[in-house]
Amino acid sequence: MRGSIAVESIAKNLIGGTERMAAAPKRPFRWHIVVFLAPAVLVYTAIMILPLAGTLQLSLFRNIDQSQVFVGLENFRRLFGDPNWSVNFWNALRNNVWFFIIHMVVQNPIGVLLAALLSSPRLRFSAFYRTAIFVPTILSFVIVGFAWKLILSPLWGVAPNLMDLVGLKSLFTPWLGKEQYALTTLSLISVWQFVGIPMMLIYAALLSIPEEVIEAAECDGITGMSQFWKIKLPLILPSIGIISILTFVGNFNAFDLIYTAQGALAGPNYSTDILGTFLYRAFFGFQLQVGDPNMGAAIATMMFLIILGGVCVYLFLVQTRLRRYQF
């Protein structure tokens, strides 16, 4: 209830605000601006901004005797200090960082390599390659998670059979079932799914490099690999920056793949638990654990701060140092 009243008052303020602003000059009040903006601003504010703020606020409260009581940072103290929570939290955070590192060191180089090859002029079938490599990206996590679970399953002989073809059968183990491999395997599955995005964005950036720049390089005798390293790579660095921050936001917000492949308990033995699955368990409860919206909100707040921190680092440190070339 509190939420919906707040929505109305904010909406009134917003519309009132625009009204005052527009009415001040001698021009007649331009109602159409309000009409054009109102639906988007209202829905966005009511369903996205206020719940976000509400979640941050809830993280400062506790449910004591059926009523919400303000407890300050108590929930966070529990999250970091109480072993019932902190062990899982630090574990999830560590796993999440590893998840992100794998994406950065595997996904981006593969994406750059594929894009560089695709953008080479007069390459045949490039439209086919582009379309085919992007296919996993459009599939849902449910499909991806389950399909890989089946393929890597020791019950079904696909992965061992394939490895037998290249004589590596002895290396096969049930990767998703072993604590030390499961998280890395899942990260690689996620990389497999999303490599299409860096490939496309870098491909677009490479195509937008003007012909003159390349020709000038060739006149100076810079061709082939050195042309790529010295001319093209510096020019696509801003795109790599954008991909990195998109990956960061996506990874620290990930949930679906782990949930479909390993379930909400993120097994084996929590070794694939990341912040998204941890939030889900804290919020809804799972098996013996009872759901706790306030702790859920505290975890969501931590995710918010991490993502916000990443975005700020990108905006203020990375983006300002990357020189953008205007052609």
Partner: peptide
């Protein structure tokens, strides 16, 4: 703002709403 901050983080309050 919403391009960078995922709506999923507001889930707790969205469910209440």
């Amino acid at each position: 703002l919403g391009i960078m901050i995922p709506i999923r983080l507001g889930t707790v309050a969205i469910l209440q709403l």
